[in-house]
């Protein structure tokens, strides 16, 4: 697809909007359909689109496999880390009420907790999907 002008320009034009949409889906997930799982997949789809059009090497310069692999682990760490932090603050594991700055409004803590946890989900799902895509797409080339 290196020669197709329409596809190249179209993909370049679409990618920032897809990434923006993924972030919207993530941060607006409390008020409308969406959340970390969907946002992670959409974000990964943006990079898959770029890789399909511009080639794997070009995308891996921006987003190396090492980084996405790290993302996959980092997200789980964020999720589990939130649980540990709430425990250190004297509440249950993943008891987000501990994160509230004002103890009379524990639901604020829930809000922060959900955002952080969803961030962990986003990072893991994004990392996993891109890593798996890289591995499948890269396998054919390295050998031959």
């Amino acid at each position: 697809m290196r020669e197709e002008v329409i596809i190249r320009v179209g993909a370049k034009f679409l990618a920032p909007f897809i990434i923006m949409f993924a972030l919207y889906v993530h941060f607006h997930g409390d008020y409308s359909p969406g959340g970390g799982f969907q946002a992670g997949v959409i974000l990964a789809a943006a990079f898959a689109l770029l890789a399909l059009v511009y080639g794997l090497e070009a995308v891996q310069k921006v987003l190396p496999l090492r980084f996405t692999r790290m993302c996959a682990a980092l997200g789980v760490l964020i999720f589990a880390g939130v649980g540990v932090v709430t425990m250190l603050l004297g509440h249950n594991y993943l008891g987000y009420n501990a994160l509230a700055s004002d103890p009379t409004h524990p639901e604020h803590g829930q809000h922060y907790g959900i955002l952080l946890v969803e961030l962990g989900v986003l990072v893991t799902v994004f990392g996993v999907m891109v890593t798996v895509f890289y591995l499948f797409a890269g396998r054919g080339r390295r050998g031959s």
Binding site: G29, P33, G34, G35, I114, E118
Partner: peptide, 8 residues
């Protein structure tokens, strides 16, 4: 919880 999307 304080957010409208029950699924989330």
């Amino acid at each position: 919880i304080g957010i409208p999307n029950v699924v989330t």
